[in-house]
Design a protein around this nucleic acid. Structure first.
Length: 199
DNA sequence: AAGGCGATTGCCT
DNA sequence: GGCAATCGCCTTT
């Protein structure tokens, strides 16, 4: 588990340092570990952030204690997972945009594509996007919004051998304001990154 | 009260 | 490449 003080720091630093950390989900009697390979930072004084106009019913947990999950519904359909950062009272979080599962590939495939036979050539599609990883791992607003990420059934731990040499930064995806900040971080060696620059 | 848009995805042409 | 799905929040009446 990662101490709360790790999250109670500058959100951009936390977003960078979460690349390579391990997300552990316990579900259906399984313990499934995944490497975090893509994140984005959202700060309170950031027009792209849900917290920019202050706490609402949706984004209130962003203003709460760090290390807690902020889960919101995107486009009325998907769920997206964040970790709250900076000291309590500030509205900041890191969006988890992609993970690379370490096990349970066929189980995760069946959660994402229940009607389609397992296809190893398309395995990255199980979790190469923020709405995809939450579907694969069964992470919803109702179950996880406001829940501390320090113990099962959903937990983040540091990687045993973090390699931050390969972490790159880029502008964030899907926003119209705050476009200049290069607050997206990803592991350039991972096939699970949702999008790499230059296209 | 009503309309538009979004930290997205998948299917269609 | 376009576009629908669908809901919370913002802006405008």
């Amino acid at each position: 588990m990662i101490p709360r003080e790790f999250y109670a720091r500058n959100t951009v630093l936390v977003a960078r340092e979460l690349i390579g950390a391990i997300l552990i989900r316990s579900i259906d009697g399984r313990v499934i570990r995944s490497r975090i390979v893509e994140t984005e930072a959202y700060r309170e004084d950031d027009p792209a952030s849900h917290s920019f106009r202050g706490p609402t019913d949706r984004c209130r947990v962003m203003f709460g204690p760090p290390g807690v999950a902020y889960v919101y519904r995107s486009y009325g359909i998907h769920h997206c997972l964040n970790v709250v950062t900076e000291p309590e009272g500030t509205g900041c979080a890191v969006l988890i945009r992609a993970v690379e599962p370490m096990e349970a590939f066929e189980y995760l495939w069946s959660r994402r594509f229940p009607q389609t036979r397992y296809d190893a050539n398309r395995i990255r599609e199980i979790s190469n996007g923020p709405g995809k990883l939450t579907e694969a791992l069964g992470i919803t607003v109702g179950e996880f919004n406001g829940v501390d990420l320090d113990s099962p059934p959903l937990e983040i731990t540091r990687s045993p051998d973090p390699d931050l040499q390969l972490v790159e930064s880029d502008v964030r995806i899907g926003i119209s304001r705050g476009r200049d900040a290069r607050w997206r971080f990803y592991d350039s060696a991972s096939e699970y990154v949702s999008r790499k620059p230059g296209r």
